[in-house]
Computed example of a mutant assay.
Amino acid sequence: MIVVDGVTKRHRDVVSVDDVSFTAEAGMVTGLLGPNGAGKSSLMRIMCDLDRADSGSVTVAGRRYRDHAVPMRVVGAQFEGSGAHPSRTALDQLRWVARTNGLPPARVKQVLEMVDLQPGTWRRRVRSFSLGMQQRLGIATALIGDPQVLIFDEPANGLDPVGIQWLRGLLTGLARDGRTVLLSSHLMGETEMIADRVVLMDRGRLIGQGTTEDMAREHGSLEAAFFARLESSRRQGTDQGPGDRT
């Protein structure tokens, strides 16, 4: 489970996350949705202690990320691309991650197979990978610790239609196994197909949350629900204008 409680983050005079609270439950896929600049990535970075909140708190599996003895065994995270140095091979990257986190070497081959990277690519340098292949390697890195909580930032970027279908099955399968799955996206239609719950953000603020089914039923689609909440939020003057948020 991920519990976000009143998180606010400023970058100088810019508010990137503004008093956001929600819970991502185990056994569910939770979609964190919003346009570019909504604050999704900033919030995920705070979850993984890559950045610090100015106020509020986030716990992952009952603790702050940094308080877990071996965080990768509890929380797996994928941000844009693979996170690997371009000169490394996929195999070397995952072996290094496994070794530095005390994970079994056998797990390297397992996760490469899980993300459907073909054996012929394992010894290629990451600089030669397509964006889709880098995304798969990043997902493999997130999975290597066999964590109960998984955080994915725009994981469909760079994937072709076959890759998106594969990703859909992977994420829903992880949730069926009882894991907490949180993904950010601006692809409303795709998220509607896989997310059990959604959290809607715009310019750092929470503008709605609930089950995907209820939102789609109320408005006809998740996309329509998002734009209805967006229009209502802005009409009520809850945003501070395009120059004040990132």
Rank of each mutant, 00 (worst) to 15 (best):
Q78Y: 02
A84E: 00
M114G: 04
G173E: 08
I151T: 02
T180P: 10
R127V: 10
L170T: 06
D160W: 07
I151S: 00
V97I: 15
R88E: 15
V97F: 10
L174I: 01
A195L: 10
L103T: 04
G138M: 03
S128M: 09
R95Y: 12
I144K: 01
H68Y: 07
V108P: 00
V181C: 10
G83C: 06
M133C: 04
V126L: 08
S82D: 06
A142K: 03
M188A: 04
L183A: 07
S128L: 10
R95M: 13
A175K: 04
P104E: 13
A142N: 06
G158N: 07
T100G: 01
Q135E: 08
R95E: 15
G169V: 07
R88T: 13
R125C: 12
M133R: 00
V70P: 01
Q93C: 13
G163A: 06
L170S: 05
R136S: 03
S87W: 13
T180H: 10
S82K: 02
R124S: 07
S185A: 09
R176E: 13
L91H: 14
V111L: 03
M188V: 09
V75Y: 01
G158M: 08
E190P: 05
Q135P: 09
I139E: 04
R176Y: 02
S128H: 11
A175M: 03
P104N: 07
R124C: 05
F79S: 03
T89R: 07
T121R: 11
R66N: 06
V75W: 04
G145A: 01
P155G: 03
R124Y: 10
V75M: 01
P155D: 05
T121H: 13
V162P: 00
T121D: 15
Q134Y: 06
L131F: 10
G158C: 05
G169N: 12
V75S: 01
V126D: 07
T172Y: 04
P147T: 01
G138T: 02
G138H: 07
A156G: 09
T121Q: 13
V70E: 04
Q134L: 08
I144P: 02
V97W: 01
R99Q: 15
A90T: 11
Q118C: 10
E113A: 14
M72Q: 10
S184A: 09
Q110F: 06
S87T: 12
L103E: 02
S185H: 08
E80C: 05
G178H: 04
D67T: 04
V74L: 00
A175H: 05
D146T: 09
Q135C: 10
